[in-house]
Design a protein around this nucleic acid. Structure first.
Lengths: 195, 195
DNA sequence: GGCACGGGTTAATCCAGATTAAGAAAAAAG
DNA sequence: CTTTTTTCTTAATCTGGATTAACCCGTGCC
């Protein structure tokens, strides 16, 4: 199955597993199909699994007091997604997670993740490493938000995620870099005229 | 020694270690004293260790193109600090780390950390857990920056770090929440007048 | 076909927070 | 205690980006 070979490859980028361990890992995963706009997790719910995207794209976002959405992260194919706060604490979360297009995922429940840690301790290492990488990305993004103009953040986004920039509705990119769709439109036209 | 008992307690909050493992861990640490304003790491240098603060307070920050500083994190006693990007990749980093007051730290070199993972695999778990917690905090802070006004971010900071608010120069808090010292001063006076 | 709806654009107006400048207060350093 | 350096404050002005509102366009969908 193509989906599980993708996730095994993703894992084996960072740790080495025996064939038996690979098989065991895959046996803990639950495939799931999402339609465009289908909601996987709502604010206030407890996040009971991580999702690995094998096709399509997920979006994690929060909704503020004024009803505006703020995109925390996108997860295209080969990325992991969860409401980490809720997943760790098993308390009601703050994120919505939905599908920006028809999307296939493999879910790993919190319970299975914990048994996985016991059975195959190398997964402690795997999740440590991807969490570290994720942490670094969020630190950089925070610094970008503190120090760059919207224009520079947009350029930064284009460089870092060249494949996403044309795949996503610009509304979503605007939300990710932290501006309104109106301003985003104006800004992008200005940049186009420049070049 | 009080310093090493503090760090052992910090670790044993999340994993259990035998006395021998504890002793081994402590043997890998190097104590270090920093004077107020002393710089531990500069932008462009490679970060070769994590620092655990036993007394005082460290600050991690970047300097933008206009020479303005942006505080990424504070590390008071009982916190860890590093330029994670550089520590992981062993490439030149983007952060400065300095001491806001006279500070005592225990350093764990990247090399020692790696042998520690081999000798005491539970440390994979420990660093996974504190990295996860850190990730969640940065995600929340990013969402705060995307969705809250400066005033709300200040209130949020006060709630989350009540002990830091009076210990730190307000200039530093201003930088952390992402406003200028001038605006911070104005804002705080407005809040005082309100109550 | 018509029609509702979400996504994108444009333009006018508005405002949170930056910038600039200068002085006051506090705290290091000597 | 004095000097120097930093930090903090106040006030005037300015601006990046938000808000509001209107319109356009594609694309389901009845």
């Amino acid at each position: 199955m193509a989906a599980s070979s993708l996730i095994v490859k993703n894992v084996c980028n960072h740790i080495t597993l025996t064939p038996a361990e690979q098989e065991y890992f895959v046996s803990l995963l639950q495939p799931m199909e999402l339609k465009r706009k289908q909601v996987l997790l709502k604010e206030g719910e407890i996040c009971r699994f991580s999702a690995f995207v094998t096709e399509g794209c997920l979006r994690g976002y929060s909704v503020d007091n004024n009803g505006y959405e703020h995109v925390l992260s996108f997860a295209p194919a080969n990325w992991w997604m969860a409401d980490m706060y809720s997943l760790i604490s098993q308390k009601p979360g703050i994120l919505y997670i939905d599908a920006l297009e028809d999307t296939s995922i493999l879910t790993l429940s919190k319970i299975h993740q914990q048994t996985l840690y016991k059975e195959v301790p190398a997964f402690e290492r795997f999740f440590r490493i991807i969490t570290e990488n994720s942490l670094v990305a969020y630190q950089q993004r925070l610094l970008d938000n503190l120090s760059l103009t919207a224009e520079d953040r947009y350029n930064s986004f284009c460089k870092r995620y060249p494949s996403l920039i044309n795949a996503l509705p610009s509304k979503q990119v605007a939300s990710y870099i932290g501006v309104t769709p109106e301003f985003f439109s104006k800004m992008r036209n200005k940049l186009l005229r420049k070049q």
